[in-house]
């Protein structure tokens, strides 16, 4: 009787039921943006451009988190992975004078940190929260210890306008005139979404995070899938670290991640463990941050501490109000025992 509810729906109804709310929200956002754009194009463009900038490390961090958790490994060490990669990326660039080698160094560092987390949680079956905390402590300790005052790099990764696309009104500046890691983040959102939900790799990853024993019984290597996803996630967190030193700031400071790794976790949750959702959540957080900056510029007579809270409060209100319950992968955080 109920077995055929899904297949009996015509395609458009099926689509509406699944994506109706999302489509509606998208339309609202589009209309509002257009409205402001026609009132004040300059400010609107500036706000949207910084929205994308703010969102980049968050969405990368969230991708790292969700790859791990979809496979059943909780990663609260994103902050540490980012920080360490930011530092190593910076050092490599400082020594080799190559920004690109720095990015590679950052990504590899992230992957290595991922490998360490995977070893602790998959092989040693340590509590995964402790594993993540170890990573965070190692990162803060090492980067603080080896931090050298005065070490500097020349310049940072520059925006690359994408030909005529960059001259489009509104979207041109915002999406088609960005530095490389920002492009990479956007591309990665779609790549990871595709991989997770439309490929063999993704099916196996999710199976391992939901019911590892079931995956094992059909010949899926649970340990391998977990290792691979955590390492890949680490590499993406590494890219976020490289973004901070080599694309956004151009130097390294102590604990410069400043909690982004943890906000990325929130972004991942609000995005319901989907890359597109996380991107939406990160953009929303970025937008409120950008608006907050504008409000501070405008010199409104409210203590800046309160204005500084805007992004957090707004994000909690809107996302908690609209997103609804998130379903956590069933085997998230549970080590897998073969016998």
């Amino acid at each position: 009787m109920m077995a055929d509810t899904y297949s009996s729906l015509p395609n458009w109804k099926y689509f509406l039921r699944r994506y109706g709310v999302l489509t509606g929200l998208g339309l609202v956002v589009l209309m509002t943006t257009l409205y402001f754009y026609f009132r004040d194009p300059q400010i609107t463009e500036a706000v949207l451009a910084s929205t994308v900038r703010y969102s980049t490390p968050l969405v990368l961090g969230a991708l790292c988190g969700l790859l791990g958790e979809r496979a059943g490994v909780i990663n609260i060490g994103i902050e540490g992975q980012m920080l360490m990669s930011a530092f190593v990326g910076f050092l490599v660039t400082a020594w080799t004078k190559s920004l690109w080698l720095g990015v590679v160094g950052g990504v590899l560092t992230g992957a290595l940190m991922g490998l360490l987390l995977a070893f602790m949680s998959v092989t040693l079956k340590l509590d995964q929260i402790i594993g993540g905390t170890v990573i965070n402590i190692i990162a803060i300790g090492l980067t603080g210890y080896f931090y050298q005052v005065g070490l500097a790099i020349d310049g940072k990764l520059k925006p690359i306008p994408l030909g005529p696309l960059a001259n489009l009104p509104l979207v041109g500046k915002v999406f088609f005139d960005n530095p490389p890691i920002t492009y990479a983040a956007i591309v990665l959102v779609f790549v990871v979404q595709y991989v997770l939900f439309y490929t063999k790799w993704g099916l196996r990853t999710r199976a391992v995070g939901e019911h590892p024993r079931a995956a094992d019984t059909v010949g899926v290597d649970v340990y391998f899938m977990r290792y691979a996803n955590v390492v890949l996630g680490g590499a993406i967190a590494g890219l976020a670290g490289a973004f901070l030193t080599l694309e956004a700031v151009g130097s390294f400071e102590r604990v410069m991640t400043n909690g982004r790794g943890f906000i990325a976790l929130a972004v991942m949750l609000f995005g319901k463990y989907t890359p597109l959702g996380a991107w939406g959540a990160a953009l929303f957080f970025g937008l409120t941050s950008a608006i907050q900056t504008q409000v501070q510029f405008a010199g409104v007579d409210i203590p800046h501490q309160f204005i500084g809270m805007i992004p957090y409060v707004m994000t909690i209100l809107v996302l908690a109000g609209f997103v609804g319950r998130t379903r956590v992968p069933a085997a998230d955080g549970a080590p897998y025992e073969k016998e």
Binding site: L203, E210, H211, A215, V218
Partner: peptide, 15 residues
């Protein structure tokens, strides 16, 4: 040994 949130087809082809 079925993944509860997967569709029947996804469960059957897994692996």
């Amino acid at each position: 040994m079925l993944v509860p949130v997967f569709s029947v087809a996804e469960n059957i082809i897994l692996g």
